[in-house]
Amino acid sequence: MSFRKPRRDSDVVLSNSSHKELLFKFLIIGDYGVGKTAIVRRYTEGKFSSNYKITIGADFAIKTLDWDPHTKINLQLWDIAGHERFGYMTRVYYKYAVGAALVFDISRVATFQSVKKWLSDLREKVTLPDGSSIPIVLLANKGDISHVAIPTEQILKFCKENEIGAWFITSAKENVNIDEAMRFLVDSVIKAKIEDEIRDSIKLRDTPLQQEKHGCCKS
C-alpha cells in the first residue's frame, strides 16, 4: 500500500530531465446564462451551440497546451453552475484552483453587478499556497450582441479597484478573445508559481547567504 501524499493540481510532473508537464485547475464562474459553458466548449472543443443544457453543480473539461518546447500544460476548466453561487458546495469545487475566469453578460447589467459577489466568494474560499489571491481574468461575454449595457469605463474601474489583472470582451459564438484570455490566465499562473518558488528558495537559504546579497530584487 502506498502512503505517498496526493499530488495537488498545480504540482509539476517531470517526464524527463528536459521536459515538464503542469496541471492547472481553472474555475469559470459567474451568473446563470452568461455563457460559461459556451466559453469552455469553444475553448476545449472549438465548437459553439446555443442549446447547452443547464449546468448542475459543476462540470469540467480538459485542454492540453504545448506551452513551449519543454513544457506541456494540462488545463482543467471547471464550469461552476450559476445557481451554486455562494453555496456550501463552491468551497469543494474551488479546491486546488490556481486561476479563475469571472464571466458576465455585457448586455445584462445584473450579471455585472453580481461579479463583485462572485469575486468576494472566490477570494474568501481559495488562495495560492503562499496566501495570495489566485490570478483572475474578467470576461465581458456575448460581445457579438450589439446591445452593450456596461460602459468600458465602469469595467476598467472595477478591475482597478479589485486588482484584477485584465479583462476581455469575448464571444463564444464568434470565437473572439477566448484563446487570448486563457493564455493571459495561464501566463499569470506560471509567473505566480515562479515567484512562489523564488520566495521558497529565499526562505530556505541560510542567514549568511542572505546577508551576502546587497542588491535589490523586484517583488
Rank of each mutant, 00 (worst) to 15 (best):
104 F>N: 06
68 D>V: 01
120 S>N: 12
113 Q>Y: 11
59 D>C: 11
57 G>P: 07
35 G>I: 03
135 P>R: 08
137 V>Y: 01
115 V>C: 15
126 V>M: 07
119 L>S: 09
61 A>M: 13
97 A>Q: 04
146 S>D: 13
35 G>Y: 01
73 I>Y: 00
105 D>E: 08
46 G>Q: 07
122 L>F: 06
130 D>K: 06
101 A>V: 09
112 F>C: 15
61 A>T: 00
44 T>F: 07
135 P>T: 08
90 T>S: 08
76 Q>K: 10
138 L>K: 02
77 L>E: 04
130 D>V: 13
43 Y>W: 08
104 F>E: 08
79 D>T: 06
54 I>F: 00
94 Y>E: 05
109 V>N: 11
83 H>M: 10
55 T>K: 03
146 S>L: 11
67 W>T: 04
132 S>L: 12
150 I>P: 09
124 E>M: 12
137 V>G: 05
59 D>N: 15
52 Y>G: 03
122 L>R: 02
113 Q>F: 12
64 T>H: 06
92 V>R: 00
90 T>W: 01
60 F>R: 02
40 V>M: 13
150 I>N: 05
122 L>P: 06
59 D>Y: 00
71 T>M: 07
44 T>K: 01
59 D>G: 14
37 T>L: 11
105 D>W: 03
69 P>D: 07
36 K>L: 12
51 N>T: 10
111 T>G: 10
75 L>D: 07
75 L>N: 07
108 R>Y: 01
63 K>R: 15
35 G>A: 08
130 D>G: 13
52 Y>N: 08
119 L>Q: 09
50 S>D: 14
81 A>W: 01
62 I>W: 00
35 G>P: 06
29 I>C: 05
125 K>T: 03
88 Y>F: 13
71 T>D: 03
84 E>W: 05
34 V>L: 07
41 R>D: 14
101 A>Y: 02
107 S>R: 05
50 S>A: 15
78 W>F: 11
30 G>N: 06
124 E>T: 11
126 V>C: 13
109 V>Y: 07
41 R>K: 15
104 F>P: 03
95 K>D: 08
53 K>E: 12
74 N>M: 09
121 D>G: 12
102 L>N: 01
117 K>N: 14
133 S>Y: 09
91 R>A: 15
60 F>D: 04
92 V>N: 11
88 Y>W: 01
42 R>G: 12
112 F>I: 13
136 I>D: 02
143 G>I: 04
96 Y>S: 15
88 Y>Q: 14
48 F>C: 10
51 N>G: 00
104 F>M: 09
63 K>H: 08
124 E>G: 04
